[in-house]
Design a protein around this nucleic acid. Structure first.
Lengths: 227, 227
DNA sequence: TTTATTAAAATGTGATAGCATTTAATATTT
DNA sequence: AAATATTAAATGCTATCACATTTTAATAAA
């Protein structure tokens, strides 16, 4: 195993399988697992001090969520990003998150806006400290809290699947442009929520995704293709 | 096990886990497994003549795809439908499938339209024979073939997750209204594809989903609430 | 030096068994 | 008769093992 699988907070009281799932999921989400590296069951079992059984179950779940690719040789790995897949993932993310935002809007209260503001402040702190892992997690937490205002929300698992697929690439992005990486900001989203303005919210969510991820992502893929 | 898990075609050369996954997935998709019934590992293992290991892996995958719900007591079951969840699932389905259709449109060729027409004809035959299982499968096959024209398609697994969640309810719907159940028709979709008309395609896909599922679904939920 | 061939190590898969938890059934008490 | 307590059965979870396949390494041939 040529890479580390970072620990995560809140893994107490879970079954082994749940623990492995959460830990790997978190690792993929923040891009801690390099693309292309084989995720072997015995290897992960050794790293985590468990048997292969719960590892295999967790890997299969992540495979079903498109976070991990199963090859013909039955090996599991984090798939490589390419231009076509990137554009399709981003367009799906835009559609899903705008939809989730609009569906949540009627349920947005001042209390929710307050909670979102707290998360956004934490994120500003993480940004100034250049703590990228925490930036990514708090960004997800913000969006989760927003869409979760809708009590009937069913699209969150789908959105998280997209996040998982973009996670490894986003990490490469960050380590590529380094401290110049800007994460889309949430101020416009908060303004739109306060105004209860659907169109403004859609635009703000689109911009949030577009600014951080898309422009930098396209540039990196372009640069790679030339090399 | 108080229900049957129908066999499916094309399960040769699969690992046990894949076989179980496909068989259960198919069963849920066509609504063959009743909502609320416990899916026990030993029970399913007995039915399928396998050990619990591949069963559990398949169930976890389906759980990750939101097709099966894991309760606190660690039991797995097909979740019940309710009004809020239904509306949210349908709205997500509309957004995702319209998006997938639009992304596929530039890749639509006369050959693809021909293939779609063949599937649609098979579906008409299934409808006239009142073969509901086959209707459902062919409907999915039609949509899969349409969206799959996009070579970079990443949203299909998400769409299939929605189908899985609507499957059991759709079956209840069919057995409720019986032979009067109408499945949304694909003729308008084919026309829009031939015209390469984005707006018409969006409307046609919306209508396709709306006609069969939504109107009847709302009526059934309404009727249940009164009872 | 490169390519084939062979041997050894590593890996994925699935059945089994033991343990912990949950559910159902039975016995006991009120 | 109803509610509670106890016991038995069923179920979920995970480590282990044996087998088949794949990968890697070492060896032999070109």
């Amino acid at each position: 195993m040529s890479f580390e699988v970072p620990e995560f907070e809140g893994g107490e009281g879970l079954t082994s399988q749940e623990y492995v799932y959460m830990r790997l999921r978190n690792a993929i989400m923040v891009g801690a697992i390099p693309t292309g590296a084989s995720l072997t069951m015995r290897g992960l079992a050794d790293v985590m001090g468990l048997s292969a059984t719960p590892i295999r179950e967790a890997l299969r779940r992540l495979n079903s969520e498109q976070a991990v690719e199963a090859q013909d040789n039955r090996r599991m790995l984090i798939p490589e990003m390419n231009s076509g897949r990137f554009e399709d993932l981003v367009s799906t993310r835009l559609v899903l998150e705008c939809h989730a935002g609009l569906r949540a809007l009627p349920y947005i209260s001042d209390i929710v806006i307050g909670e979102l503001r707290v998360i956004d402040d934490e994120m500003d702190a993480a940004i100034s400290r250049r703590n990228y892992d925490r930036m990514i997690c708090l960004n997800h937490k913000f969006h989760r809290a927003l869409y979760g205002a809708n009590p009937d929300l069913t699209s969150l698992p789908l959105i998280e699947s997209i996040w998982l697929q973009l996670g490894p690439f986003q990490r490469e992005l960050i380590s590529d442009v380094g401290e110049f990486y800007v994460m889309g900001d949430h101020k416009a989203i908060l303004d739109a929520l306060m105004d209860r303005a659907p169109e403004a919210l859609t635009l703000a969510i689109e911009n949030d995704i577009q600014n951080g991820l898309v422009s930098a992502g396209r540039a990196l893929i372009e640069r790679r293709a030339q090399r």
